[in-house]
Amino acid sequence: EKWDMPMAYPATNFHSENAAEFAACVNEGTGGELEIVTHPNGALFAGNDIKRAVQTGQAPIGERLLSAHANENPLYGVDSIPFLATSFADSEKLWEAAKPKLEEVMDSQNLVYIYAAPWPPQGLYFKKPVESVADMQGIKFRAYNAATARIAELAGMAPVQIEAAELSQALATGVAESFISSGSTGVDSKVWESLTHFYDVQAWLPRNAVFANKDAFNALSDEAKKVVMDCGAEAGKRGAAKSEELTAGYLKTLADNGMTVSEPSEQLKSDLSKFGETMTQEWMDAAGPDGKEIVDSYKAM
């Protein structure tokens, strides 16, 4: 059996490399009974389509940034509630709290959850020093989904909608003056060509999840199922470790290229954690009792 695995990010991205290792682990572990072939870079299906493709069996397995589907079900956005879980350790806890519910949601959509790995934490990029939310007033801030638009709104920034492909140019020409993303995005798009300050606020750690089509998965032998799940568990751990290891490197690269990389000031930190309370409440309202249960059990950990 051959499983084509669509993935959205370039082959050299650590998620893609991790998934390639996962595929190799499965191929070896099943002794060729199941062969997973990875297709990075959106070469098979674009990121937006991967989940649906797997749901409908157009692809038997795939990897996707899970929070992209928060419009469909707020639970998918649990890893992207701003300023709720702001470190690798907290993000891991939040994920443990959320996983049972997410597995249920996926199961109801004909998907089998295999593993997930976090991106490096999201930080704020600016063109000037920012000591508090008051300093953000009126800045043109790139919003690419509901949550980032809400952050702009809370902070009094002007949200500008810029697609990923246009980000570099938008920054270079001043269409956008600020955005929130991981250190890796900053390095990848050589953001120092346009911006000057990076604040490591660790707003959230979004995850890429790998899932299989339920029918395809159920058609596997029990041994093969176990191999897939074991390799997945390993890949999840490896991905998180790699992400943490890379984070420091990304921030150093930003600094080496002349950006001011720093922790947020106390004032900024407390301003942002207030946003966090507001947006966590808003998320719980949207996600209903399941959402409240997840947040409560996370806070109890």
Binding site: N48, R52, N71, A143, A149, Q161
Partner: peptide, 15 residues
């Protein structure tokens, strides 16, 4: 039909 049955919602801000 499937978009309707799956309740497939745009991943952009338009939802």
């Amino acid at each position: 039909y499937w978009s309707y049955a799956f309740n497939d919602i745009s991943q952009g801000q338009d939802a």
